[in-house]
Simulated scan of single mutants.
Amino acid sequence: MAFIKTTEQSSYYTDLDKKSVGELLRGINTEDKSVPFAVEKALPQIEKLILAVTNKLKSGGRLFYIGSGTSGRLGIVDASECPPTFGVSHDVVIGLIAGGDQAIRKAVENAEDDRSQGWKDLQEHAVSPKDVVVGIAASGTTPYVVEALQLCNKNDIVTGCITCNEGSPLASTAQYPIEVVVGPEFVTGSSRMKAGTAQKLVLNMISTTVMIQLGKVKGNRMVDMQLSNDKLVERGIRMLMEELTITQEEAKTLLEQYGNVRSAITSYGKTHG
């Protein structure tokens, strides 16, 4: 069967430039509502990848996201939020983008077409069979990503992917492919829209579920979060008040003493158990 990019097919909506703001918003919203259902169909694929990632991270490995453009930026966002949210080191989940860090803000011409750079970028981080590499590409054809995964496979490194087209070269390369087929975009070919939303939802699932499996959540609370601003300190105090049934002042004192919600809970339990 020939590979067809549904993300590149013509929008279901015509004459966008003639529609009112209200009509445009309703159309975009209608399309957006279809994305979670597309993700739901891919849950079995997502589960398989998460189990593989969890297994590697429990053994001291790392999770790499690699992509270009919007896909690369979304991977970087997810990776960058793991340390403050779950208290892990910055080198546990790593996001790489075609064109390097400058591409986070501005598009780097032809970066996604460089077949060799993806593997080079991974090698700069000493990628090894202990790790997992997840390629992110809405099209499923990005050379920077596809070639990187091919070389990972040759070097016994577990590979996964997130793509929004069925039967793509990327999906056939990845050992654990995730295909979230969202269909044509509201603006034809603008895969930062539904495809980007789908990728963000899947990335949320991967990092959150893996971190829960690694013990970084207690009950439903982020007990290992970094207390990097006043809002998070206040959240930590509330967590301690609710978990330990103590006053605000007692919780504040504990948090100041131990600097971490989990440590405060553990210590309190030992002295008041």
Rank of each mutant, 00 (worst) to 15 (best):
E185L: 10
E185H: 05
F186N: 02
F186W: 15
V187G: 03
V187W: 01
T188W: 02
T188A: 13
T188E: 02
G189I: 01
G189L: 06
G189W: 00
S190C: 11
S190A: 15
S190D: 06
S191C: 07
S191R: 00
S191H: 01
R192A: 06
M193G: 02
M193Y: 01
A195Q: 00
A195S: 14
G196S: 09
G196Y: 01
G196F: 02
G196A: 10
T197S: 09
A198C: 08
A198H: 01
A198F: 04
Q199R: 09
Q199A: 03
Q199L: 09
K200I: 06
K200S: 05
L201T: 05
L201K: 05
V202R: 01
V202I: 13
L203M: 12
L203Q: 08
L203A: 13
N204D: 13
N204G: 10
N204A: 09
N204W: 14
N204E: 11
M205G: 11
M205I: 15
I206G: 01
I206H: 05
S207H: 04
T208Q: 04
T208W: 06
T208G: 06
T208H: 09
T209H: 06
T209Q: 08
V210K: 00
V210A: 04
V210W: 01
I212T: 07
I212V: 13
Q213Y: 11
Q213F: 12
Q213L: 15
L214G: 03
L214Q: 00
G215A: 10
G215W: 05
V217E: 05
V217A: 04
V217I: 13
V217S: 03
V217D: 05
V217P: 04
N220H: 06
N220C: 10
N220P: 04
R221H: 10
R221I: 12
R221Y: 05
M222R: 05
V223S: 02
V223M: 04
D224Q: 12
D224G: 03
M225K: 09
M225G: 08
Q226M: 15
Q226K: 15
L227D: 07
S228Q: 15
S228G: 14
S228M: 13
S228A: 14
N229R: 11
D230V: 15
D230N: 14
K231H: 10
K231T: 07
K231P: 05
K231G: 10
K231F: 07
K231Q: 11
L232K: 11
L232G: 07
L232A: 10
V233Q: 07
V233G: 02
E234V: 15
E234N: 14
E234I: 14
R235P: 06
R235T: 10
R235K: 15
G236S: 11
G236Q: 02
G236I: 06
G236W: 03
I237M: 08
I237Y: 01
I237C: 09
M239Y: 14
M239G: 02
M239W: 02
L240G: 03
M241D: 01
E242Y: 12
E242L: 10
E242Q: 13
E243C: 12
E243I: 14
E243D: 08
E243M: 13
T245F: 08
T245N: 12
T245A: 12
I246V: 14
I246E: 00
I246H: 03
T247Y: 04
T247S: 15
Q248S: 12
Q248K: 13
Q248M: 06
Q248I: 12
E249A: 13
E249Y: 03
E249G: 09
E250A: 14
E250N: 11
E250K: 13
E250H: 11
